[in-house]
């Protein structure tokens, strides 16, 4: 696997590594699917709104748009499976194999290793949350010092991990309703329908404002946060969002004397 330098210096500025090309590509597939699915799905949910018909017509109307919706839904489901395999593979190759090599592969150690992964919620997230409220409510002037993945980012990450398993299979079953009716009772389709549309609504409302606020709208980033393209974060953003990681990386790279203070 390609090795990315943790800090890149360009034109006298430091950039900090966040996402590999492989991860960025997965994200691009993810958001392309989500946006297309929203645009071909919500006109149906809100069919009586004035914007519904034009958008649906743009995607080819009732004879084409459902096919687009199903195609992108399938791609997204595949991505979900792929990503899960990718995660398991990473976990196995980096952690389990190492434990094996060291000869201390026990169930307890494996669980420990699992929980120590950067994406898994941990105690620090809880303390960060408290720190954040203390800071936001003007109780203290010390902003929370997030590590590599803040609790917000973990939330963003698990949102699709909860959403896709609800949305995707529901959509898939509704697509093949006739075939699935041999296994499922009819009322299941009512339930799946509600699951599909309501969870989609939650995802869309969340992504449009909360996620995009975190990565695009917030005053430092507006109009466009670029980390999803470049994979690297500027020093200012790094200090602002991941101070704990910033300090650690600077120390690891031998730049301890150049560590900047955390601004608010």
């Amino acid at each position: 696997m390609q090795k990315y330098p943790k800090i890149v210096e360009k034109n006298g500025r430091r950039y900090f590594f966040r996402f590999s090309l492989h991860q960025r590509l997965q994200h691009i597939v993810l958001f392309t699917c989500v946006i297309t699915l929203s645009l071909t799905g919500f006109p149906l949910k809100y069919f009586d709104q004035p914007w519904a018909a034009p958008i649906y017509k743009f995607f080819g109307g009732i004879h084409v748009a459902p096919t687009i919706h199903r195609t992108f839904g399938t791609i997204l489901l595949c991505l979900f499976v792929y990503h899960t395999i990718y995660w398991v593979y990473l976990f196995y190759s980096r952690r389990i194999l190492r434990l094996k090599k060291e000869g201390c592969l026990t169930f307890g150690n494996a669980v420990k290793e699992f929980l120590s992964q950067e994406m898994i919620p941990c105690k620090k997230d809880f303390y960060d949350l408290i720190d954040m409220f203390k800071y936001l409510l003007y109780i203290t002037n010390r902003p929370p010092r997030y590590d590599r993945i803040s609790w917000k980012e973990k939330f963003d990450y698990y949102a699709p991990y909860w959403g896709i398993p609800i949305l995707g299979p529901a959509g898939f079953i509704l697509w093949w309703r006739d075939e699935f009716s041999h296994i499922l009772p009819g009322f299941a389709f009512n339930i799946l329908y509600v699951m599909h549309t309501d969870e989609a609504l939650l995802a869309a409302l969340f992504l449009f404002f909360v996620h995009w606020y975190n990565v695009h709208y917030s005053p430092e980033k507006f109009p466009l946060g670029t980390v999803f393209i470049t994979g690297y974060l500027t020093e200012a953003d790094m200090i602002h969002e991941h101070y704990a990681e910033y300090e650690r990386t600077m120390r690891e790279e031998g730049l301890e004397d150049q560590i900047k203070p955390q601004h608010h």
Partner: peptide, 19 residues
């Protein structure tokens, strides 16, 4: 910009309520 965004956030909260 932050003030404008606050206004937008409040509006968004109002907008999503009926939804």
């Amino acid at each position: 910009y932050a003030i404008a965004l606050i206004v937008f956030a409040v509006w968004y909260g109002y907008f999503i309520y009926p939804i």
